[in-house]
Nucleic acid binder design. Structure first.
Lengths: 337, 337
DNA sequence: CTGAAAGCGCTTACAG
DNA sequence: CTGAAAGCGCTTACAG
């Protein structure tokens, strides 16, 4: 690899002049300029990015992260995506500083935010609680980009959101239901809570798809809540089966394990679609106890957040959209290899 | 950000000594060492990666790539994955040098390899033809890692392969067939060629899954070749429908468009699973003319190849396995958002 | 055990 | 229009 100094020597001039030509800053004798350009070309000159970064004072970056991941397998996957993606970039000064917390307590999340911010990060990524206090705290952080991950809240200064398109998740689950029930049938839905927007959007997406087509009728015969809890889920699902006789049950939130157990106990030919890619579901899937998982791919959410911030902080490229949805992935028994 | 010089000043010593302590090269008065460590810690010292890379003489890398992508939508997707993934790394001296060629002509591929190698790349990625000449040419390139992409050939000096697990693709398609035909039924298969390993592996994977379970019988009633050609596919599919009366057809190679048209014309309720994620298939999918696409995700193949080489060339990390399979992705109508 | 100096490859004033 | 010099933050001999 030829250097600026070598070019200067070959051209019988100085580094300053070579630099001027290479960056066409003008003020150079055209003849010398041509000589320099020819030499550079012939030797396939490329500037040394490290020297450039050094003299330009390129910053190292640390991304502050607040994640409600403690004891939550879903967010542990998000975390894996974050760590593995950022690992690649570490060599050139791109790091992460994660504060993991457990559950949802506003005071604790506020404390975590403050701790992370105190370390002076180049950006903040967070799974924010949707409360006034958090909203206020975040909206004051106007000097760095803020990325919400998996959970979203309104924020004027939001840089990006990375997470699930819940309506689409519901629609894809609807696709599966139609595949399984080509002649129509009854569907029961077990949701987490009617108060949670994402759950409702899933239901809506699902109904939209199964409802619209042809002469085939798929009826949603009942929707019950389980509060994301396995015991509740078990009870609610039993009741749903007894009273509504569904041909298929769509579990559009957590607490799937209890629900699936209720279905297995009932020993009827009831098909199941779930949203959680957690170990017990994988087991159920490969045994044929459930038919499909439609998962929001937590690993990718973590990795994509890192890519978005790297692209911006290092390459100066903003994401095309604020909303960045990861694919709703369809997992069948042999998707797991 | 504090620097080595500042630490030296604060500690009342020299840069050399600070360097020694920070890299524990020994030979430093323990008292001074402690002082230095304390200052570094207190000021959260991190070495400047650019200065380090400069003095260490970190190499810039160009990955030579030979791709049979001209006029091939599939490989254009691979190309997109390659370009976008490598774009991110360009800033720190990681580049690609692609030679695109059309079709499969050994001489031309040899020429492309030589051209790319002449530019002295740090690695070579290629969609190799499985011929003696190519094999010989590649096996002589022992000084750089070679990654085969999408197509694989035996090679002692192969660094990695990135591509499709064909058997798994067949198994996942089998999963879908079982979802669609819960009570069993007849399946016809349209393959490219009995001489192509990947196609045969798909068929085998498919049969393995639909054949093994319960009392439900899914019979593969016929397998026909279409030589990846739409016209052949149309004719062969018509014949298949007429003679074998399948409930479902599995297109496990290219030339799907002609085949699907034959099915539509037949106007029977025949379900379809295909492997090609190309624009006409997306249209068919959203119209309900076909039920699912099981695609090998060409974009990811390109991107993953770059990640593998970046990880090795820049971070010195070898891939865990030589065989790197991308996920066989299930696309249903609403997967496309 | 320690420090002064040179050098990695570039850019940036500055003087002429 | 041009060149000499300083400096970015680190590492590497070298001399003591």
């Amino acid at each position: 690899m030829i250097t600026i100094k070598q070019i200067a020597d070959l051209a019988g001039t100085s580094r300053g002049t070579v630099d001027r030509v290479l960056h066409n800053r003008g003020s150079v004798n055209p003849e010398i300029a041509k000589r320099i350009l020819d030499i550079a070309e012939a030797n396939n000159y490329r500037s040394n990015p490290f020297a450039k970064a050094l003299v330009k004072g390129d910053k190292r970056h640390v991304v502050g992260i607040v994640l409600n991941s403690v004891g939550n397998p879903f967010f542990e996957e998000v975390l894996r995506g974050i760590t593995e993606a950022s690992e690649k970039y570490r060599k050139y000064g791109f790091e992460i500083n994660i504060k993991e917390i457990k559950g949802y307590n506003e005071e604790e999340q506020l404390k975590a935010i403050r701790a992370v911010i105190a370390a002076n990060p180049s950006a903040l990524a967070i799974t924010p609680m949707n409360t006034k206090g958090i909203s206020k705290e975040l909206s004051e952080l106007t000097s760095i980009p803020i990325v919400t991950i998996n959970q979203d809240i309104p924020l004027k200064n939001k840089f990006a959101f990375v997470g699930c398109d819940y309506s689409n998740s519901g629609r894809v689950s609807g696709d599966i239901a139609k595949l399984i029930l080509p002649k129509g049938g009854n569907v029961g839905i077990v949701t987490g809570s009617f108060k949670i927007l994402g759950h409702n959007e899933r239901i809506q997406g699902f109904e939209e798809v199964v409802g619209t087509k042809d002469g085939v009728k798929i009826n949603v015969v009942g929707v019950v809540e389980n509060n994301d809890d396995d015991i509740n889920s078990y009870t609610a699902t039993r009741k749903l089966i007894r009273e509504k006789k569904p041909d298929l049950i769509y579990f559009c939130a957590a607490g799937t394990e209890g629900g699936v157990k209720a279905v297995i106990e009932a020993a009827k030919d009831i098909k199941i679609v779930v949203v959680d890619d957690i170990p017990p579901m994988r087991t159920f899937l490969s045994r044929g106890s459930i038919q499909a998982i439609v998962t929001q791919h937590p690993y990718n959410q973590g990795a994509e957040m890192i890519e978005i911030l790297y692209d911006f902080l290092v390459n100066g490229k903003k994401p095309k959209k604020v909303q960045n949805f990861t694919e709703n992935r369809v997992m069948l028994p042999h998707s797991i290899s």
